[in-house]
């Protein structure tokens, strides 16, 4: 209890701006996780988002190496991440649209190759670089400038989701019908992938690759059990994501453990718990029906 009180007093303590920034970052990224996560989930492209987010490590590794060895001055990990995210999204987008047969192989290859390039370059980077710091990130290191970037992306994503909601819904539900209605489904898909890639880059430098992919799928997946439509799935996903982020931050603070990993564990627990409860309810309903009939 004292720990919890300590967490709340840290939140309002002007000497600890990083705790407040972490909370605001959690809330701002919840909008991205909720809205993009719902689309990723119903469009079943979580694998694609996973590949992009992991391939980004390759760009980070190369950028760290080039900067530390002085070969390219001023290059930041985020620049490397952006290049790799765009490359990965372009390759995956083209392969998904043009060559369906080998889609899964290419996605896994990009996932593995991107990460491996990252590890190789980090190993050759002067000084010590821990790849796991990029896997789990550290939300407590977030700056006010980062928060502004997050806020801008939130506004862009909300505007796009609102403006093109009917097209996103139709493309995700029945792509063939959407095409017949004249919706440029390929462009909508590439736009979804690009927005996901941009969000992944921005989010993963704050909260880490593992948390990004977990939070793009788990809150939306949990929301899917309750949501009546795609819009409510986006809204519920955002609320769940905010709760998980807040819970993870508080628990991380109180138990003195990494916040990112804590958020993922809470989100995963909620998702698996909901899924198990739903399965039990369906099973018991079927049994009751079966018993009534016999």
């Amino acid at each position: 209890m004292d720990n919890l009180l300590g967490f709340f007093s840290a939140l309002v303590n002007p000497d600890f701006p990083f705790v407040r920034n972490a909370l605001v970052a959690g809330l701002l990224s919840s909008i991205l996780f909720g809205v993009i996560g719902a689309v990723v989930t119903v469009k079943r492209i979580a694998g694609l988002a996973g590949a992009i987010s992991h391939a980004v490590l390759g760009g980070i590794g190369i950028a760290l190496y080039l900067s530390a060895t002085g070969k390219v001055a001023g290059i930041t990990p985020m620049m490397g991440a952006i290049v790799f995210a765009i490359l990965a999204a372009a390759i995956i987008g083209v392969v998904s649209l043009k060559a369906k047969q080998r889609e899964d192989t290419v996605i896994q290859a990009i996932w593995a190759i991107g990460m491996s390039i990252g590890v190789l370059f980090m190993a050759k980077t002067p000084g010590y670089t821990d790849p796991s710091s990029y896997l789990f990130g550290n939300i407590l290191l977030i700056s006010t400038k980062d928060l502004v970037l997050l806020f801008i992306l939130d506004v862009v994503v909300i505007l796009l989701a609102w403006r093109f909601y009917p097209q996103i819904e139709a493309t995700s539900f029945d792509e063939e019908f959407a095409q017949v209605r004249g919706i440029p489904t390929q462009r909508v898909f590439l736009l979804m992938l690009s927005i996901t890639a941009v969000a992944v880059v921005l989010l993963q430098t704050f909260v880490g690759i593992v948390m990004v992919i977990a939070m793009l799928t788990l809150p939306a997946g949990t929301a899917g059990y309750w949501a009546k439509n795609l819009a409510s799935m986006m809204a519920l996903g955002t609320i769940f994501s905010a709760i998980f982020s807040f819970g993870g931050l508080a628990a991380g603070w109180m138990l003195d453990v990494p916040v990112g990993a804590m958020v993922v564990v809470i989100a995963g627990g909620a998702f698996l718990g909901t899924a198990a409860t739903r399965m039990l309810v369906t099973y018991s309903r079927r049994r009751t029906l079966h018993n009534d009939k016999s």
């Binding site: 539900f173 209605r181 004249g182 009546k228 439509n229």
Partner: peptide
């Protein structure tokens, strides 16, 4: 068709009037 896609009957039918890019 994905049975886990959250959507009501009315929303499916409404989709029939969707335009290519406008709202």
């Amino acid at each position: 068709y994905d049975p886990t896609f959250p959507i009501s009957v009315l929303e499916v039918v409404r989709m029939g009037g969707v335009l290519s890019t406008s709202r």
